[in-house]
Design a protein around this nucleic acid. Structure first.
Length: 284
RNA sequence: GGCGGCGUGGCCGAGUGGCUGAGGCAAGGGCCUGCAAAGCCUUUUACCCGGGUUCGAUUCCCGGCGCCGCCU
């Protein structure tokens, strides 16, 4: 926000798997209405929580937003929380497509015979892909098989893979906090969300159907458990805090692998400490 | 004061006279091509203290300390 305000012709693009959902405001730490009125934001509130929404849909929406911004001679400042979504937006990753029937069958098989058996099947169809995943990782094994069977091509033949980082005109900055500081900030942030009425937001959300992706959002799934009587509020809050801490570590690890990211170690004030680098990147 | 129970790694929690120590959580390290705020892999750390029995005790006995429950 500080950078966008200062520069003027910049619009913010949220690259976040959960801020896309309407009605999930407090728990996803969405920019306030005031902030959104001040600087134009994209990809926030674009879909109903009842809708199944995933990386492919996100990418098309992101492309449209970026085109729109370019057409109006503005510049985009992407703010990323979701590593996979971010990658797919900036790097032209080939997404193989979906075969729901095959997938449903595979999911059922996984439950019945166990994922390692499916992994063995994958090994026969696509040894390269099989070697790249743990035999127990149901999600990945099922998806790889779904693509092999559905497309008739090995899963590993799609695109160069996420581990290749081609040169990009997009400057990437990563802000990094010391773990202990981060832990304390997360505790405060979660408490602030509760104080701001997150439980009520969850109750409202539950009045209508929620699709899988929205349902598993950190801060929401725990509070749904509480609201539906499966745990105390304190337990839910504690789970959100540790879950957020773990997410932050996973995010850092994900982005750390991208050699194109330039890291800025924050000591106390992210705005003061990162703003020069952001402005510098925008100046190019 | 009496009686009973308990005391295991950062936390919860099984268990055993030796075959080197279930599991879960947390923490550390890592993975990731359509659920990604999700999913998965991996690593580290013990048996309250003192004495005794025994070839050998975290496990049995005695004492101490601490905690919990019941009684007075």
């Amino acid at each position: 926000m500080a950078a966008a305000r200062q520069v003027g012709d910049v619009e913010i693009v949220s690259v976040d798997a959960m801020q896309v959902y309407r009605g999930m405001d407090i728990g996803t730490a969405k920019p306030t209405p005031a902030d959104q009125a001040d600087v134009r934001h994209h990809l926030i509130d674009i879909v109903d929580p009842g809708v199944e929404f995933a990386v492919a849909e996100f990418r098309s929406a992101a492309r449209e937003a970026l085109d729109d911004i370019a057409r109006r001679d503005k510049r985009a400042l992407l703010v990323a929380g979701t590593g996979l979504y971010h990658r797919v937006v900036i790097d032209d990753i080939e997404l193989p497509g979906q075969w729901p029937d095959i997938r449903a069958e595979l999911d059922e098989d996984a439950g019945r015979v166990g994922t390692p058996v499916l992994h063995a099947r994958l090994e026969a169809l696509d040894p390269v892909a099989a070697a790249r995943m743990e035999p127990t990782n149901t999600r990945r094994v099922v998806r790889a098989l779904e693509v092999c069977i559905g497309s008739g091509r090995p899963f590993s033949s799609f695109g160069p893979g996420l581990d290749v980082y081609p040169p990009s005109p997009i400057a990437q900055l990563g802000l990094r906090w010391p773990r202990e500081v981060l832990a304390r900030r997360i505790e405060r942030r979660v408490q602030a969300m509760i104080d701001a009425g997150l439980v009520g937001e969850v109750r409202t959300l539950l009045e209508r159907p929620i699709a899988r992706t929205a349902h598993q959002a950190l801060g929401y799934k725990e509070l749904i458990d509480h609201v539906e009587g499966r745990c105390t509020l304190d337990a839910a809050v504690a789970a959100i805090v540790t879950g957020t801490r773990q997410l932050a570590v996973r995010q850092e690890r994900w982005f750390r692998r991208d050699p194109r990211v330039r890291w800025i170690d924050i000591e106390a004030d992210p705005v003061a400490e990162a703003l020069p680098a952001v402005l510098d990147a925008l100046a190019r």
